[in-house]
Each structure stands twice: as C-alpha cells, then as structure tokens.
Design a protein around this nucleic acid. Sequence first.
RNA 1: GUGGGAGUAGCUCAGCUGGUAGAGCGUCGGACUGUGGCUCCGAAUGUCGUGGGUUCAAAUCCCAUCUCCCACCCCA
Length: 499
Amino acid sequence: MSEGAAKKEERRKFQAIRGTRDLLPPETALWNRVEETAREVFASYGFGEIRLPVFEQTELFARAVGGETDIVSKEMYTFQDPPEFTSRLIAGFAREVGAEEIKRLATNQAELLQRLYEHKERAAVRAKQGIRSPLLDLLLEPEENVESLSLRPEATASVCRAYIEENMQQWPQPVKLYTVGPMFRRERPQKGRYRQFYQIDAEVLGGSDAPGIDAELIEMVMTFFERLGLQGVQLHINSIGDKNCRPKYVELLRDELRKVKDKLGPDSQRRMETNPLRVLDSKLESEQDIIEKLPRIAQHLCDACRENYDEVKRQLALRGIVYSQNFRLVRGLDYYVRTTFEITAKGLGSQNAVCGGGRYDGLIELLGGPPTRATGFAIGEDRLILSLQEQAKSRGVASEDPRVEVYIAWMGEKAYKTAIHAAKNLRAAGFSVELPPVEQKFGKALGQADKLGARYALILGDNEVASGEWTLKTLATGEQQKLSESRLLDFLGKKRSGE
RNA sequence: GUGGGAGUAGCUCAGCUGGUAGAGCGUCGGACUGUGGCUCCGAAUGUCGUGGGUUCAAAUCCCAUCUCCCACCCCA
C-alpha cells in the first residue's frame, strides 16, 4: 500500500454529504449582501427578525405541511430522540433471543417489530413479578420520553408554533416577522435544489385579511428584488379559494379530468385522484392542450374569495406592481388559501421559482392556536444567488469587492514593530489590512499584495522608520508618496469616501 | 424513487481504435539581497472516483458501485 493511496483514502473519507455544500469567499460576500438587503428592506416595512430552531417535533410539520405531502412522507430528516432508543431496544432484545435469531429477524422488519411489541407486553407482566433487566426498563420507559424530531423542511410551521407558544396574539396585530436560515429536504439534488438550502422567509400573522396586507407583502419582495438588481423577475398570482369553494372546484376538476383520463400521462392519472390541482402544474407537452380547456378556479370562487382576489389585484395595481394571473399556479403545501403567488427569475434551469407564498388563514388554528389570519412567503436564497451570479456573468460584471485594502510590506525588526502598530491603527480606522507575519523582500511582498488584489502597499523599511515618513504605493498606478502616519490615515480616509 | 450525462494534478481539460500519464492556469522557489504586474528557469502535487473482470499489458474494453451534474416526481 503506497503512501499516496493511503492519503487519498484518508481524504475521501470525509466529504460534504449529498445535496449539501460549502459556501466560500468571495461568494459568501454576495450572500451577506443579499441578507443585509433583506434586513434593510424588511425592516422598512416594519418586520422584525425571529430566529428559530432548525428542528422541531415531527408532528408539527406533519400537521402544518400535510402528512400526505411528499415533503412530510418521504423528504424529511427525521430521527428519534434520544437517538439510540431503537438500537438500544434491538440490542437488548438481541441479548434475550440470541444473535442467530436477531440476524434472521433483521431481514424481516415487520416480524421484528411484532416480536418487539409482544416482548413489551410481556415486559409489564414480568416487571410485576419483580424480574428486571435493562431491556425491560427500556421497554417500560414512558413513550413521552422518546420523541420523533425532524429537521425543518420549511419555516412557516415554526413561525406559527412560535406565535402560539410566545402568545404573540397579545402583541399589537398583525405581527410581522422574517427569518433567514437553512431548511432540509431529502430530495435528489439538481440545479437550484439542495438538501440543505436557505430560505428568507417573511410572515404576517394576525390582524385582518385585508387585501392590502397581501399586496404590501408582495410589494416588499418585489422591492427587495429590485434593490438587489435582480432581472427578469416575473410575478404570478392566483387565488385558490378557501374551504368553502375550493373543495367544490376540486371535485369539478376531478370530474372533468376523469372524462379525459385516457389522454393523461401516468403521473397525472395518479394526481387526478390524490391532488387534482397539481395536474394543472404538469409540464408534459401532450397534456398542455387538455389543461388549457379545464375549468379554472377563478371562475368558481365563492363571492367572498372573488371579491378578495379582485381587491388584491386592484391593490397591486395601485402600487404599480406588474403581475400575470396564472390559473395553473397551485401551491404544493396544504395550508394555503386564497391568494397565492410565485416569483420566477432567469438563469435558473428548471427550478426557476425564487419565491413562493400565499395566505394561510387556517394554519395557526390547526396547530392549536386561536383563529388567526396569516400570509407570507419564502424566498429560495440559493436560487436567488444563482440568478444574481448568472446575470453578473452574462454582463461581465466583476464580483464582490476586493478584500485587502492595505498590504504592509516591511523589512527589519524595527520596521516590524512599526508595521504592527500601523496595522492596528489602520484596522481600527476600518481598513482591511494584511500584515505578513515573516519578513519578506520588498519584491516578494509587493507580489503578494498584487495577488491579493490589494489597493495599496504600505512600505516600511529602515528609511521610513528613521524619518517617520512612510511610503504608500498605489498598486494600480505604481505611484508612491511619503506620508506621516496621521497624514496617511487622513489620505486613505478621503480616498475611501470617494475623495 | 426514476431517467440521461460526467468523473484524469488545486482548477480547466488533452490522452484516437489497450503498451502503467500530459498541457494551460494556479501554488511554491529562483533570476530580482528597498519595489509588484511582464519575461525566463526550476519544483511539488496523480496507485487516471472505487472495487472486480478480460488481457502478457487497462486511464482506455466489460460489470458493479460511489460521487457530481441535468431532468422527472415533488417543491423554494
């Protein structure tokens, strides 16, 4: 076994797990700019930040997102807490039944669970007889001591949980919150889709369901995108009715779909039964004509929903927001009612939605809170960044700011002392300073400065130390000047503020 | 979960129909012991994703597997 092979083996042992990635400088500067912009814009609309745990009880998501959705049924990272419960259980069981038996059972989970269950029933009896063992103790442990937890696949459920738990209905209504952070879904990665992905999330909870709230929320995202200079932004809106009119429409849709069942692909035939609305979303070329002819929900809204939808549109117009109505826009999550919207951007491949949102009036009540109106959106930050990067690429714009402003080239022990002092003061004044830790020849030091993209090199040698007049070199032009320390700070300060 | 494409140096890739590896860029050192970008010279880094098979011989052909990319399902 060669050394190289061993090294390689060692290195490939650890790698970022599928669908996760490292975000590195200078790209992270863009992430920060995006998040800072969000904070500024959202604050100007009266939103405050909420920071949430990244994991919650599984039941919260099952209830909020919908137990039947793919997200909950197969895409969540779910685990037991304490984590070793199951394995301890099986290990204990193995000691009682023997290794051979457990090996056999390992290939048949159903039987294994059945046996464990029987074992548990007997455990209570045996405990009464005074028989004790670690396994028995474990089996008799109250169920509440073991919880099923999940990494959050989205943020809305947690925000609602917090609203209830923190009694936010006592706050002035509505409560406007935003949050930024990672979400987790176990999906097959593709362009703009990761297993750990980031969302910028905003929610308006409580108060009325005035269409002005929905419209202003949309205005806020659009303003945010505009502030970032995001191009090719398109707003799609729709109303999917409420619990009065949607079920009727869904039945109507299903009936119509049954008539054309033969012309539908297998996916849509399945969706026809499970979630007919999703058929509208089909990308299959052969189904497009059929979908165009299907009844549209806008024509089947109840009076209240229709009035609400009309008013949202009027309010958007008042704000000068351009939108297109998209009857095929159906949100995937169970909790949405009435207004739904989605924003797409360019350069994103097939996952081109950067923001999705809508109203979810019933959710907080569903989670055990008081009846509460609510609306919100989630921005896919990874996709937003991707789109910004694509457009920067196509326009040939340089990426984020150079990192080093002043590179200190020093020679000699005395100069080093001065350099340390200078670095400290320059940094205190807010400059980004690179101070090489070991002596280098000036040629080498300037080469380093150049490679790091530094704007200036501060040259400190015996001459400078003796005279107190330091040499500042502007790398781009090669110009040099002699400056005292105070004049140096002054000079750089002026340069930075645009002279 | 399903389908397609791809894995060769840190990066981008070449290596045709089998004869145990190259370029450019980057990194480091030197020409250049108080001045960078240019140029020139030199160096380091690979059991060619991994395992198996065919063969005298495999980066190259076959099988399996892993990872990445793209798309479907689903969704931000």
